[in-house]
């Protein structure tokens, strides 16, 4: 799949995989299909998974004509026929969805990158060893 491809099928599939919640649209409605394609283009493993999943789904018109249950059924068929490709595609979709600031806000997660700020190291409190220290040495002598 390339950036110029029709992403309507992918977008519809994304909405079933990560549906709307609270005031957030589903992953497709958030416009993430383009980002998924872009990221997959940069990694041959990801791209192979995306191509397999999209290739195994019905055509865009047929897929969107299905009701929610029918769309989920089509996705489940792909999942069971090629679990590795489907799983990897799902991992990529999850990673991209959970990069979105709006999603972080909904989860009440700070959403900061781990560095450079980091977090605060709590103090070391030796009293936590009170019980563990009472144990006699028990390593096996040789």
């Amino acid at each position: 799949m390339t950036l110029n491809s029709d992403t309507s099928l992918l977008s519809a599939a994304l909405d079933r995989v990560i549906p709307p919640v609270d005031d957030l649209p589903g992953a497709g409605g958030m416009g993430l299909a383009g980002e998924v394609v872009k990221r997959c283009e940069a990694d041959s493993r990801f791209n192979a998974a995306l191509t397999t999943v999209i290739g195994a789904l019905p055509s865009p018109n047929d897929f969107t004509a299905l009701d929610d249950e029918g769309q989920d059924g089509a996705l489940r068929t792909v999942e069971s026929s090629d679990p590795d490709a489907f799983g990897l595609w799902l991992d990529v979709v999850y990673a991209i969805y959970y990069m979105q600031p709006a999603v972080h806000r909904r989860l009440s997660w700070h959403g900061r990158t781990p560095q450079p700020e980091g977090n605060v190291m709590p103090p070391w409190d030796e009293s936590v060893l009170e019980v563990a220290r009472q144990r006699e040495p028990f390593w096996r002598q040789v």
């Binding site: 990673a95 990069m99 781990p114 560095q115």
Partner: peptide, 10 residues
């Protein structure tokens, strides 16, 4: 290192 980038998990 990628831990300063928003796409670190990906």
């Amino acid at each position: 290192f990628p831990t300063t980038e928003p796409d670190w998990e990906l």
